[in-house]
Simulated scan of single mutants.
Amino acid sequence: MRSVVVGYGSIGRRHSRLLDELGCQVSVVSRRSIDHPNRYPTLRKVFEDSRPDYVVVANRTSEHAGTLEELAQLGFNGPVLVEKPLANTPISLPAGISEETFVAYNFRFHPLVNDLRDRIEGEKIVSVDAYAGEFLPNWRPDRDYRETYSAHPEQGGGVIRDLSHELDYLNWLLEGWSRVAALGGQLSELEISSDDVFILLLETGRCPAVTVHLNYLDREPHRTVRVNTTEHTLEADLIDGSLSIDGALVSEYDLERDATYQAEHEAILNEEYGRLCTAEEALDIMGLIDAAEESASNYAWVEK
């Protein structure tokens, strides 16, 4: 399969490597001069050479919408995987975009998240608390954090977008959000202009009380979700790969860092789309982010 990765930052390099390992013929679109045998300066140049079968959009978040528009103009109707989030601001999908356009919320392919999903099936959920935090300067040790897209809201940075995996998997587990209240912004002494803390309170289809804490500040990475049902307390730790029920360990997963990304690509290559985040679902996450930012500005609940 002929695949194209648009963008060659850290995540673009990962997608390129994984697709190569999966046996794809990989081309890369990058404005920079990079060490890749099939580098093209523009997407149009790729299409002039040979029409791809699969496109991964991994450039800056602020450039995603323009890339989707270009794919529509080029008449591409194959599968597209867009890095999360779908865009830095709410958008309308361009007319003619492929129906097989998905967004890379790869936690849907994490066996721990799927284990949790199976175990709460049929349970009455009372409360959910999710927490994700990691110190931004440690994210990319080879780069000055102040120069990364994460530091700049106009490039799609900010913790509520960077850690929107939590918003997606909670939406997926809990049948969608209905209203949100939030606090957050640039609150620490990190030298960035994007938000570094966001705390959300949600109502969802399956749970009346959901809290989500996201930050760029935890010196020791922390990523957990606790679910209280009428029968049990379940806690998943996505750092150590463990699931406990009522304090007792029931599952452990030793997962390679690339495993969920690879599983996501394999699902697309095998046309097994059931677990993938659709563009429409990703737009709903963008709506939630927009509503949370509105709530934080106005100190008020925002309905969907």
Rank of each mutant, 00 (worst) to 15 (best):
N59P: 01
T233D: 13
N59E: 04
G66N: 11
E154Y: 10
T260E: 05
V250E: 11
P90H: 02
E281S: 07
W139E: 11
V6C: 07
D53G: 09
N228H: 12
A248Q: 14
V113D: 06
A130K: 02
L136P: 15
R140M: 14
L174P: 07
R60N: 15
P221L: 02
Y261M: 06
L187M: 08
P153D: 00
E100G: 00
P141N: 02
D237R: 03
S62E: 13
A72H: 02
V180E: 04
E191L: 05
T211P: 13
E264T: 15
V197H: 02
L18D: 13
G274C: 13
V210R: 06
V80R: 07
Q186G: 02
A132H: 13
E21K: 11
A87S: 11
D196V: 04
I239L: 10
L243G: 05
S30A: 08
L68A: 03
V6Q: 08
C24Q: 12
E203N: 13
V302L: 00
E252G: 06
W172C: 03
V128I: 08
E293H: 07
A151N: 05
A236C: 11
R119T: 08
S10R: 02
E264Q: 10
R257P: 14
Y8S: 00
L136M: 14
L170N: 06
S30T: 04
V212M: 00
I160M: 04
A151S: 10
Y273V: 12
L243V: 12
A267S: 11
D196P: 00
Y40A: 01
S27L: 09
V29K: 04
A279H: 09
Y253A: 05
L276G: 12
E220F: 06
F107E: 10
D196W: 01
Y54G: 04
E63I: 03
A291Y: 08
Q186A: 01
E293V: 13
D258Q: 11
P141H: 05
A291K: 06
V302P: 09
E134G: 08
S164W: 04
S188M: 04
D53I: 00
L18F: 09
T148I: 05
E272M: 03
V5R: 08
A65W: 10
R108M: 08
H64S: 02
S242T: 15
E83V: 06
T42Q: 01
R2C: 01
F198S: 03
R32C: 04
I97Q: 02
Y216D: 02
L112A: 04
G12E: 01
L18Q: 11
D240N: 12
I268K: 07
D118C: 08
E280C: 07
R179S: 14
Q73R: 10
G122T: 08
L276M: 13
T67D: 09
V26G: 09
R140F: 15
T278F: 10
D49Y: 15
E220L: 03
L93V: 12
E220N: 05
R257L: 12
P52S: 03
D258R: 09
M286Y: 07
Y169N: 04
I245G: 11
L174V: 05
E235T: 15
L22P: 14
A263V: 10
W301E: 13
N59A: 07
I120F: 00
E294L: 10
N270K: 13
P137V: 09
